[in-house]
Computed example of a mutant assay.
Amino acid sequence: MNGETTLRVWRGEGGEGRLVDYTVAVEEGEVVLDVLHRLQATAAPDLAVRWNCKAGKCGSCSVEINGRPRLACMTRMNLFAPGETVTVTPMRTFPVIRDLVCDVSANYRKAREIPSFTPDPATRPGEFRMSQADVQRQQEFRKCIECFLCNNVCHVIRDHEDNTAHFSGPRYLMRVAELEMHPYDTADRRKIAQEEFGLGYCNITKCCTEVCPENIQITDNALIPLKERVADRRYDPLVWLGRRIGLRPASQDTPIPPGVRQDGRAAAPRTGEPRRKPGPDTT
């Protein structure tokens, strides 16, 4: 795609702004971020756009291009028809600081509320053993580059601003799921997933999965399995019966026997293969 294109860019600060049209040269093989940089160098030197790696690995250049949340550095200009106007706007879910730059700090505040990885203190370094299936599951979730496109399209955050304090969004629900599925994590995170991170708000529309630039199956491999674990804890008839007759999981006030997790399940052994937590393909 050589020649010129009309780039329609959101300009303004805070909630005030407007779309401005620019005619910008385009060369073969360029991406939207290249054209934005040329626009900065020629007609709009004060244009604010966040970027870092230009390789689709930092998540900084998240914007909406023709209404679809994308990474500007991974969206090629040849996706658009010759003469088509390319509209670039900031992510609409987050407060706009200036032009294409949004304030995503609320996501990081929510991230700090997640309890960190909690292994059995009796397991010493070098004694952790994981099956390849568990390793692959963790690696999928850790591919996240925190572009926050998933949180941007989540209707719970987008349409209900008052939920942001109670709902972490798919990005950090996935983090909770990652820790809950880790075979050596001893914490029971099902209660906080529901009560502190708002898992119940999610209605698994899969919009978060559709926009993920790393192709992480957020809904199928993280959110649905996490919902299943919460449902088992709340609605399993055996658990209900145990509560009725006075059986409860061990609490902080009750000494926990060696080899037993805080939720009453057997802890992973110190050597050999750990006791696997059920993954996305099991309940």
Results as ranks from 00 to 15, higher is better:
4 E>V: 14
5 T>H: 03
8 R>K: 10
15 G>T: 12
23 T>Q: 09
24 V>L: 01
25 A>W: 02
31 V>A: 05
42 T>Y: 08
42 T>L: 02
44 A>D: 12
46 D>Q: 12
49 V>N: 04
53 C>Y: 10
54 K>W: 03
55 A>N: 02
65 I>T: 07
75 T>H: 05
76 R>F: 15
79 L>D: 07
79 L>P: 00
84 E>M: 11
89 T>K: 13
89 T>I: 02
92 R>D: 13
99 D>T: 07
101 V>M: 10
101 V>H: 06
103 D>H: 04
107 N>G: 10
112 R>D: 14
116 S>G: 14
120 D>A: 12
121 P>S: 04
125 P>L: 03
137 R>V: 08
140 E>C: 12
145 I>D: 01
149 L>Q: 10
152 N>T: 07
158 R>E: 11
160 H>K: 00
170 P>E: 09
175 R>Y: 15
176 V>R: 03
184 Y>S: 07
189 R>D: 05
194 Q>M: 14
194 Q>N: 08
198 G>A: 05
202 C>Y: 06
205 T>F: 14
210 E>D: 15
211 V>S: 01
212 C>D: 03
214 E>V: 13
215 N>E: 15
216 I>G: 01
227 K>E: 09
227 K>C: 01
231 A>K: 12
232 D>R: 15
247 L>M: 12
252 Q>K: 15
257 P>V: 00
259 G>K: 00
267 A>W: 11
279 G>F: 08
